[in-house]
Nucleic acid binder design. Structure first.
Lengths: 244, 244
DNA sequence: CCTACCGATCGGTAGG
DNA sequence: CCTACCGATCGGTAGG
């Protein structure tokens, strides 16, 4: 889209499928890890400080309190997935089927590549009302984006579910669920998990092709010719399961 | 099944669709409520004792410690849903489609009718290793029951998903998700939510009828003649959404 | 074998 | 960013 010369100070639009190492302040990184292991209330500020290698007061020099750590992490997370999903939707255009697939792919890629951030969604209960309200508003916006696309697809007959709002909520729940079980050293890559969840989601919203396999949205998946080097059974058998 | 006379001391088999008031020790009831509101680590034993109206030592007379409260609640919950799912599977017989529908219905009914118990699933991280292992084993057993049924249906062609293990995990995640948003005073009854999730789940595992509407597994749902008195749009519009 | 507490205080930790 | 602390509260237990 941007045709400006490379010396333009505008950074190149980060692609929604591209994930580098997570770049957060060390305090946020270790807070994220601790919250993942023990939950928000189960984590002491001394634990976080110890992981970072600083004293407790040093923590409070950088962040107002423990709540600010969680709020910053959750807001960073929801904004990133929302940006990526918007980018995916924009790139795939107005065709509801492709748009839906791109959005689901982008969300699942996020859940897998940013598992530790995405997993914090379970801690929204520990957000103070104002922080929670902002987080939930962004999450609801994501849900509405996806619902609009499903409604558009319904109008065209590419999605047949009679209950699009329920279907979208279920799709988002199953995407979010990826953050609960995905492991980097598991049998499936993030990209493979995303591909599978696109297929599963298409079934949930009632896309005929997802069920009949005609046309196959993911030939590799449907015909069992996955390039994944990890296989727990012969081709034609059940798919390998990710670790828990 | 049981043809014994009524004076038999064997209690009538509790039906898996039947839900009376939750009957737990008052301490467990209030611990459940507190854990729901603030999480395990966010709840003090004094808070629980205060809700019950007893002193803290009185709490420790009945339960060894706070951990035992959570472990008892979670074990009660997973055993109940497992029992009900087994009953549903047994009642619906060996036909994979009906069996799958019955199992999903039983699980979703549990998530809605026993929302506060089912929601504690988010606290497994706070279980000590031994307690967690027993809980996860029972949850895995439920998953295997459902997977066996989906595999059987695949062999018959009633389910077409090429990734049955992923589909089953997604189905269970979306069922569990009901405990996150269902409200008794919401627009949908537990029974309506269960019916919708059976349809959504059929799409996820690739049951052709769920997508083509032929044959319609749930005529009321597919033809928009729901008896629900709550409607947010005219027939043919989008389905009402449950409260958050 | 079960149900049912009290006033006071234990050693440590919480967020700040 | 550290040393030195605070008011209060944590999960759990003492003797009676």
């Amino acid at each position: 889209m941007n045709t400006a010369p490379s010396q333009d100070t505008t950074p190149p639009a980060e692609h929604w499928r591209s994930y580098g190492p997570l770049d957060l302040h060390p305090i946020l990184m270790h807070a994220m890890a601790a919250f993942n292991e023990h939950g928000y209330h189960g984590t002491s500020v001394r634990d976080i400080a110890g992981r970072v290698g600083v004293t407790v007061p040093a923590l409070y020099y950088h962040y107002e309190n423990k709540q600010a750590l969680l709020a910053t992490l959750l807001e960073t997370s929801i904004k990133d997935v929302l940006d990526r999903c918007r980018a995916a939707a924009g790139e795939t255009g107005d065709e509801p089927l492709a748009r839906f697939c791109g959005m689901v792919e982008s969300i699942v890629l996020y859940m897998a590549h940013r598992r530790q951030l995405a997993f914090l969604d379970t801690e929204i209960r520990s957000l103070e009302p104002q922080n929670r309200a902002r987080y939930v508003a962004l999450r609801d916006y994501l849900e509405h984006m996806l619902l609009d696309t499903v409604e558009a697809g319904r109008a065209q007959g590419v999605f047949t579910t009679p209950i699009p709002a329920d279907a979208v909520r279920s799709v988002l729940v199953m995407c979010q669920g990826v953050a609960n079980w995905f492991r980097e050293d598991g049998p499936l890559t993030a990209e493979e998990v995303a591909e599978r969840h696109v297929l599963l989601s298409l079934g949930t919203v009632g896309h005929p092709g997802a069920v009949t396999g005609d046309p196959p949205p993911f030939p590799r998946l449907v015909s069992h010719r996955s390039p994944s080097p990890v296989r727990t059974s012969a081709p034609g058998g059940s798919a390998p399961r990710a670790s828990r």
